[in-house]
Amino acid sequence: MDQKIAHIDKLSGKILVFGGVYSNLQALEALKQIAEKEHIAPGNCICTGDIVGYCAQPEETVQLFKLWGAKSIVGNVEIQLREHAEDCGCEFQEGSRCDGFSQLWYPFAQSKLSENSLDFLKTLPNNLHFKFAKKKVTVLHGSYFNVSEFIFKSTLWTVKQSNFEATKADVIIAGHCGLPFHDLEGGKTWLNPGVIGMPPNDGSPNVWYAILDDSKENFNFEHKTLNYNYKLTSKLMQNGILPQEYARTIITGIWDNTEILPPFETGLQGFGIQL
């Protein structure tokens, strides 16, 4: 498989992992402050991709990310943007509401990004490998085989297992699906820290990330919620161009639709995150 893969020999201490900034500058600012408060170096802050997305400040978000010095892999959105593709590559069903919304926010993001930001996106690898707490860790977006594949807590373990076999990882940190979860089996850990750009359909405006630590040389992780200035994010999205349904989701914490979700995750809408 032709992929650009970044290798880091070893990381230690606390690691902040997150996904889907989605052009949400206010959430990124708040998360950067958390990292600084926790004394987590930029090199130990890792994004699972989709720095750009649904919200109103794509250029400002990429520039802050670049200034921060955190690490990221590419999501499907970065791949499409840097290749000047016509759509976001999310593999939404044609004619669906998500597909229709993407025809609004994706061209908006394209129109706002500078060449400097696009050049930065071109530097991002497809996957990231490192050793941490005696574990081999791989960071990917959707799956190793398909950057746009949605993998959830309810996704069969056999699907996840094939990713472990391909990457030879003990831990996979993934993004794309928008929901935080972890799944453990046979000494392997699939961890999705969630996204910070959009709430996870749980009825709260707060967003999610995770912190890893190697205390006592063990692999430990904790899911965390992030409170930020979501009212400003929503207000900025009400610009007559972006989907107002997404601006509303920023406030309510409820998705406009559950088209991408399996039955189990659909049934949890508005009932909080079940970890």
Rank of each mutant, 00 (worst) to 15 (best):
M1L: 11
I5K: 01
H7P: 00
I8R: 04
I8W: 00
D9N: 11
D9F: 04
K10I: 09
L11K: 15
S23F: 12
S23P: 02
Q26Y: 13
L31I: 05
L31T: 06
K32R: 10
K37V: 04
H39Q: 15
G43Y: 05
C45M: 14
D50S: 12
G53R: 08
P58N: 05
P58C: 08
E59H: 10
V62E: 04
V62Y: 09
V62S: 06
V62T: 09
L64G: 10
L64M: 14
L64H: 03
F65I: 08
F65M: 12
F65K: 06
K66T: 13
A70V: 01
A70P: 01
A70W: 00
V74H: 01
V77T: 12
E78F: 08
I79S: 01
I79C: 03
E83H: 12
H84Q: 07
E86R: 07
D87M: 00
C90P: 00
F92L: 02
F92W: 07
R97F: 06
R97G: 05
R97E: 14
F101Q: 06
Q103C: 01
W105C: 02
Y106H: 01
P107V: 01
P107K: 01
K112N: 04
L113Q: 06
S114L: 02
D119F: 00
L121M: 12
K122C: 13
K122I: 06
L124E: 03
P125E: 06
P125G: 07
N127D: 02
N127A: 11
L128G: 01
F130T: 14
K131D: 14
K134M: 09
K135A: 03
V139L: 04
L140M: 15
H141M: 09
S143M: 09
Y144G: 05
I151H: 07
F152Q: 01
V159C: 13
V159N: 15
Q161M: 13
E165R: 11
T167S: 03
D170T: 10
E185P: 03
G187T: 08
L191W: 07
N192E: 11
N192D: 15
P193I: 11
I196V: 15
M198Q: 15
P199Y: 04
D202M: 02
G203N: 06
G203W: 03
G203M: 08
P205D: 08
N206T: 15
Y209Q: 08
A210V: 08
A210G: 11
D214V: 13
S215N: 14
F219T: 10
F219M: 13
T225A: 13
L226A: 11
Y228V: 02
L232C: 02
Q238R: 15
N239M: 10
G240D: 09
G240S: 11
G240R: 10
L242P: 02
P243L: 02
R248Y: 01
G253Q: 00
G253M: 02
D256I: 12
L261H: 03
T266H: 08
T266E: 14
G267C: 05
G270Y: 09
Q274S: 11
L275N: 13
